[in-house]
Design a protein around this nucleic acid. Structure first.
Length: 633
DNA sequence: CTTAGGG
DNA sequence: CCCTAAG
């Protein structure tokens, strides 16, 4: 677990001095219900020639209690970890707008934790800076520091730990170079395709493993095409979610990190991307590493109940207004905190939310200002959409908001760990925060849940899939159900409970008073931007799909994929005509090889025969046509 | 945007 | 599936 992780929080600092500073400054604000202090401050590191340590830790921190930054409307926001991303960033973001139009805004998020001294605690603070535009800024010795405090390891769930481990990634700024040792725990990859002025920002999906692309291709079309058409879309990619500066630039921590991190030669690719500025950035699977739920949730029958009664109710209600219907149920035996009603109530304790990460990839030659701006853009872009809550049960995403908890399988006697909550971007909201001329701004497309989950086979998911299923052509017949097990693309359209819809949703989260482990990390979730950068999820063709394809091709031929699409796969968003063309290609290949060499779901020989037949026929037709046209000329 | 092909 | 060149 050492992978780039500093076992001792203090290691990330230059010494006890800083530790002390942090401690002191935090003490005042320390409060259980105020795990975080989010405060935009006028931290202008641009003119500093000294180590950031001072500015980051002393100046800002000291200001917390002194109201020196009263110029900002929301200069101090106390927020629980659960909302660090949404609320915090929003606050910060909005404040930032007021703070300084010159973009000399320093965003600082300090996590307060009571157990700083406890073993396993890690202290770090996030410093997100928004800077001037292209102006080259000299800050030879500036350091960005990421600072946050985690709780005791013992209190952290797996996900939590991972989160913190990744924190180790640091950004070290020294001399004229910016290093992004983005080692993230066990993750073995980091990429820093820095080249010129390009900047990439990508938010990494926590569930990227599930290799799911949320956005239906069609939905992306506009964007993609837009991008393709040579727009000024700037591609941002991932790099490191945490930018930390270590006072000891040459410190072991840094070096070790550096060693551990390989810097894949993404230069070429980056170059290409820059030049094209349009195509989805191909994220490597290496990035997909986290599969843990975003939250540590305890659904208990053992009396754990950290939510105030009203919150519990609210939460319950927001999950489908199911409980009201269950009236006769007796109070759970262990319901110490159970509401005074006779219903069976599910008691939830959301220990914390782990939010998605924000990766930023920026050339070493980029200016500090551009980096700041980049971060700001990313943050504001996310903020614009707000967040919504997602829910996982047994690792599967629950999309049907209308189901009752019972129907979904959540009952008062549920086992813990079954539930998971996620904060997802809520793309239904308009975002007014982004500057119009912002070159980094991306079009807002459909919602992109932060957390992807693996195929959902649950009945709960069926409803979600309806859209696609319904779209299937009748020729699919009864095989309709065989279609892509998980059409996650439909997720966005699912009326997930959103913060707006569930008045108590966000409030409840905020209300959690005893957040002992502020796991929340300052980061942005995946934005539309990244969406298009992600590889689509693999969706093997089902037999029925193959049949539909074959049938369509038999009739239309092999050169009219668009028509094929329209005929047999219209409304099947995730199958593009290119996909169909590719599939036909593979079908032909499959049909030609021996059955033993075939992989995947076996395609009935009958279909393969038809494939060959149709292929031969249409090839002949094409040949004839070509010969004919040649003769004509 | 579509096609057609290579990767 | 992705990415492109071409049309």
């Amino acid at each position: 677990m050492e992978g780039g992780i500093s076992p001792n929080p203090v290691d990330t600092f230059s010494g006890e001095e800083h530790q002390a500073v942090v401690e002191d400054s935090i003490t005042e604000e320390r409060a259980k219900d105020k795990p975080f202090i989010v405060k935009p401050c006028d931290l202008d590191i641009c003119d500093q020639s000294s180590l950031l340590t001072e500015q980051v830790l002393e100046a800002p921190v000291s200001n917390f209690g002194s109201n020196e930054l009263t110029s900002l409307p929301n200069d101090v926001c106390l927020l629980p970890a659960s909302v660090i991303t949404s609320e915090c960033l929003q606050k910060v973001g909005s404040a930032g707008q007021f703070a300084d139009d010159e973009c000399k805004l320093g965003l600082r998020i300090i996590t307060q934790k009571l157990d700083v001294q406890s073993s396993g605690c890690r202290v770090s603070t996030g410093c997100r800076l928004e800077g001037e535009s292209e102006k080259q800024i000299k800050m030879e010795s500036k350091i960005f520091r990421n600072l946050s405090i985690s709780s005791r390891d013992g209190m952290c769930g797996p996900g939590c730990r991972e989160t913190w481990e990744r924190k180790e990634s640091a950004l070290v700024r020294s001399s004229n170079s910016v290093k992004f040792p983005s080692c993230r725990g066990h993750m073995s990859c980091c990429s820093f395709p820095f080249n010129s002025e390009g900047v990439k920002i990508v938010t990494r999906d926590n569930d990227e493993n599930s290799s799911r692309r949320t956005q239906p291709r069609n939905a992306n079309k506009a964007i993609r095409s837009l991008a393709r058409s040579g727009d000024r879309r700037i591609r941002k990619s991932l790099v490191s979610k945490y930018w930390k500066t270590t006072t000891n630039l040459q410190g072991e921590g840094y070096n070790s990190n550096k060693k551990r991190c390989s810097f894949p030669n993404t230069k070429n690719r980056y170059k290409r991307q820059i030049s094209q500025r349009d195509y989805p950035f191909k994220k490597r699977k290496l990035y997909y590493c986290s599969s843990a739920p975003n939250t540590d949730v305890i659904v208990s029958s053992d009396g754990i109940c950290s939510l105030p009664e009203h919150d519990s109710k609210a939460a319950a209600c927001s999950y489908g207004s199911a409980l009201p219907g269950v009236n006769a149920a007796p109070t759970s035996a262990t319901g110490e905190c159970s509401p005074s009603q006779s219903n069976s109530h599910v008691k939830l304790k959301i220990k914390s939310f782990r939010v998605p990460e924000l990766f930023i990839e920026i050339p070493e030659t980029a200016t500090v200002g551009s980096l700041k701006r980049t971060v700001m853009k990313a943050v504001t872009a996310i903020l614009g959409d707000g967040l919504r809550v997602g829910m996982l049960l047994q690792g599967k995403k629950i999309r049907d908001d209308n189901r009752t908890l019972l129907q979904t399988g959540i009952s008062h006697d549920n086992k813990s760990d079954a539930l998971g909550f996620t904060l997802e971007p809520n793309h239904t909201q308009a975002s007014p925060t982004v500057c119009p001329e912002d070159p980094f701004q991306l079009p807002r497309d459909n919602p992109q849940p932060l957390a992807r989950i693996s195929p959902i086979s649950n009945a709960v998911q069926d409803a979600v899939k309806q859209g696609n299923l319904d779209a299937l052509p009748d020729l699919m017949g009864s095989n309709i159900r065989n279609f892509p097990e998980s059409d996650n693309d439909s997720a966005p359209s699912t009326p997930d409970m959103s913060l707006e819809k569930t008045p108590t949703g966000s409030r409840a989260l905020v209300a959690v008073p005893e957040m002992r482990e502020p796991l929340a990390i300052v980061s942005t979730h995946k934005s539309k931007r990244s969406e298009s950068l992600q590889r689509r999820m693999r969706r093997p063709f089902t037999v029925s799909e193959v049949e539909a394809l074959v049938q369509a091709v038999e009739k239309l031929g092999t050169g009219r994929w668009r028509d094929v699409k329209l005929k047999a796969f219209d409304n099947v968003k995730h199958r593009t005509y290119v996909d169909l063309k590719d599939k036909w290609k593979t079908l032909v290949h499959t049909a030609r090889i021996s059955p033993q060499q075939r992989r995947g779901e076996p395609v009935p020989q009958e279909l393969l025969d038809r494939v060959l037949t149709a292929h031969a026929y249409w090839s002949e037709q094409q040949t004839k046509y070509q010969l004919g046209s040649q003769a004509a000329t």
